[in-house]
């Protein structure tokens, strides 16, 4: 109504289903509220006032894996936590993505020892790695934008 009166008749847009669905998925990705260590604090900063992740439709952090489609692994994954993380990943509904935030989650970082899993990609498939110890909020946002670009290129044939 308001839009039509302002801009006139807008007509019909034709778009491929693939593009429309991918566009919609990038505009409302719900990350899981899942903090492990130091990076979780920077993830909170990214959510909060100055960096404001809600600009990208991501203000809703869901504490339940059943309601989220993006897992941001923020921090070091220990051997005790690894099975829990895998279970959480399995509980997320498709489609789902994993972003490995920080050096520890990506490759073990400074902790090359008995306790830390040397990269979360040993237990879950990772879409985007963000380097840094911890990464700045800008870096995390950059990682998320990269993930969006990646999602936009997904094909309908791969969905099934």
């Amino acid at each position: 109504m308001g839009l039509t009166s302002k801009l006139g008749e807008m007509g019909v847009i034709t778009v491929r289903l693939e593009d429309a669905v991918n566009w919609a998925r990038t505009r409302a990705m719900w990350p899981m509220l899942f903090g492990l260590a130091c990076c979780a604090i920077e993830m909170m900063s990214t959510q909060a006032s100055l960096y404001d992740l809600s600009r990208f439709g991501m203000e809703l952090m869901r504490p339940s894996p059943r309601q989220s489609d993006l897992m941001i692994v923020a921090g070091r994954v220990t051997r005790k936590m690894a099975p829990v993380l895998r279970q959480l990943y399995d509980q997320m509904p498709e489609p789902k993505w994993v972003l490995s935030m920080g050096d520890c989650a990506s490759c073990g970082g400074v902790f090359n020892n008995y306790a830390v899993v040397q990269g979360v990609d040993e237990i879950v498939p990772v879409d985007v790695y963000v380097a840094g110890c911890p990464p700045r909020p800008e870096q995390l946002i950059h990682g998320i934008m990269m993930l969006h670009e990646r999602v936009k290129q997904e094909h309908i044939s791969d969905w099934a």
Partner: peptide, 11 residues
């Protein structure tokens, strides 16, 4: 506890 045991003291 221990879900974030990083082995820092050993490192």
């Amino acid at each position: 506890v221990g879900y974030l045991h990083t082995g820092i003291e050993k490192t």
